[in-house]
Design a protein around this nucleic acid. Structure first.
Lengths: 347, 347
DNA sequence: GTTAGCACTCCAAGAAAAAGAGTGCCAAAG
DNA sequence: CTTTGGCACTCTTTTTCTTGGAGTGCTAAC
């Protein structure tokens, strides 16, 4: 499909700006892309594009820079949708390692994605709410201390070491734990805390000094509910030119990346986001808290339950084409390998 | 103990510089501290202090700044060694919560320390090498996947989820795991990998397709060996004036904090470090990779084995007095609570 | 519709000047 | 022999001004 002149010019501007991080002028455009028009013509088109709100100027006589809308338009209509062979090759290499668990595959893939896009990648773990408690194990460490290990049916593990009060024997702790275990296994993680509440009076009759056990379990269950967040490629991201000389921007970005809440906030504010297939693109916007940050996300599914979100985070000036294609490719390949058979692989 | 004039001046300079991050001039010194001498006299003393190597100039006509040696001297002879009541109160509040595990106490204490010193605090977990494997548990998740959970005798947990190859049944995996378990429990973590090597031929005879199990275990054991590092207060640190406008310094600091290796490297280079009680102070030095970073560390002991290191990391211009006192106080209190009874608390 | 031409705007970089903070040192006073 | 007032000097920081250049918008002609 060939583009009309105006769109073609917009495309060039977006791509050139993505590459150089410099506002693009009419002259540059002609030289770089050998356009068969005079600079005046280009300027007219640029002006028109600015009127529609797809381009912006940094000051009255500067070159043009894409607006959020401009990027959005680019994503929707102009991008090439090509996945680089390099990326395919690198991802495939990771995916082909059969005995790797999905977590490891995701980790390594994210490192590759980060590296190839110079963005940070964030893995937002599956919300444990949908998982069920599969096992509670008490492991005595010494006469007065023990560790409890909790495993969900999707292999997520939490643990907690605690001190056994003098008035309780290890046997009693074990008995108490068994009691909880019998009543809690199979419970969805989201209901654990409520169910504990109900168990409180019952366990009261069983064991004296049970409250340590009770409290230990409760605290750990609360941890289940918190988001599991992994972050890769921070270094790559901070070497982008927008951060080269701007300490404030760096601090702000670190803030964003270090506290999941913020990221989730940005992501939630999504009425204006552009969706394409499984990919959602949030393009930073001047009336937001992080105006110059864009986030491209995709849901990762393994088996038939939702398994988590992968996001690539960076400046609004990011290579949307590359990022979207890469993420789409990755999500597709991943589901091909870890598809609808609940975690089994398809050898 | 009252100081001689020269030392008193050095003390004021160090403290003023720590407070303001600006080179200190003779005039300022007189005004701020009401010294009963003329500026010329002060200048003579400053000159002398520079000759001895305790002060430096940022350029030929600038005020003075403490040198590494100057800081060191300050730490050893000049500091006040007072612990603020505020800090005592806040730490005590955390320490008094009886059922908290030591990890949580350390976490919260570090947050307090970071907050009150505006430095980053780093917890370098106990080196697992000294721990012994206490438990291996296989938890089946589905027909073709399972999680193994490993616990050391000090309550450190590692886990790994893996996919069971088609040619193996869950029973076989369990059997295989049991075999490993029987032979590995009690082994020091440092020897696990070697011992695995020895087991390889034996297990070969037992089960077909054991290599997945073997590989899973081996990979997890390798993870045991890696350092366990926690980091708090990055935000506080990056708001220090040295980072206000210097993107490069921020990047460098983040690099340092994000990769444990670097931190350990800095810490190891310790011939010149100053030790006082349980505290070790590494003061950044111009011929090092991180010339303007200082690290104050203390070993934390629980029971009779070494349990880890806590470090406060920040610019060489840090409040050594406050930091050392705080850390010393914390370490002392902690060992009071979690003293020599192997993890029991003293209620 | 396209383009050459030109006036205009704004930024970036550099030079020059001015202001300020601080030093070192000398000679005189204590 | 230590302290101090005085002064020349150094170096940084801030401000102002200038200049060059990149880029635009507009108009009139093609």
């Amino acid at each position: 499909m060939t583009l009309n002149r105006r769109d073609q010019i917009l495309k060039y501007i977006v791509e050139h700006f993505i590459k150089t991080a410099q506002p693009v002028g009419s002259q540059t455009l002609i030289e770089e892309y050998h356009l068969p028009y005079s600079s005046a013509t280009i300027r007219n088109e640029m002006n028109a594009l600015e009127q529609i709100g797809l381009l912006e100027k940094t000051h009255s006589s500067s070159g043009r820079v894409p607006s959020s809308e401009g990027y959005r338009f680019y994503c929707e209509y102009l991008r090439d949708k090509e996945v680089s062979e390099d990326l395919k090759y690198n991802l495939q290499k990771v995916l082909d390692e059969k005995t790797r668990s999905i977590e490891e595959v995701i980790k390594e893939s994210c490192e590759i994605l980060s590296h190839m896009t110079s963005l940070a990648s964030v893995v937002l773990g599956p919300n444990a709410k949908e998982e069920h408690l599969a096992s509670i194990q008490l492991i005595p460490l010494g006469p007065r201390s023990a560790t409890v290990v909790f495993v969900t049916d999707r292999g997520y593990v939490e643990n907690k070491t605690f001190v056994i009060p003098n008035e309780m024997s290890m046997e009693e702790v074990a008995k108490c734990m068994k009691m909880f275990s019998d009543r809690l296994i199979g419970t969805p993680v989201s209901e654990l805390v409520i169910k504990m509440e109900a168990l409180r009076p019952i366990v009261n009759d069983y064991v004296i000094g049970h409250d340590v056990v009770y409290k230990t379990l409760l605290e750990t269950f609360l941890r289940f509910a918190s988001d599991r967040l992994l972050l890769y490629g921070k270094k790559e991201l901070l070497n982008q030119p927008e951060f080269l000389d701007d300490a404030d921007k760096i601090r702000k970005m670190i803030n964003l990346l270090d506290s999941p809440e913020n990221l989730i906030d940005v992501e939630k504010n999504s009425e204006r986001d552009y969706k394409e297939g499984n990919i959602t693109i949030h393009i930073g916007n001047s009336n937001e808290e992080y105006p110059d940050v864009s986030i491209v996300t995709t849901k990762i599914r393994v088996g038939d339950e939702q398994e988590g979100t992968i996001a690539l985070v960076g400046p609004t000036r990011m290579d949307y084409d590359k990022v979207m294609s890469a993420l789409e490719y990755f999500a597709k390949e991943l589901s091909k390998y870890y598809g609808n058979d609940k975690g089994g692989n398809n050898t």
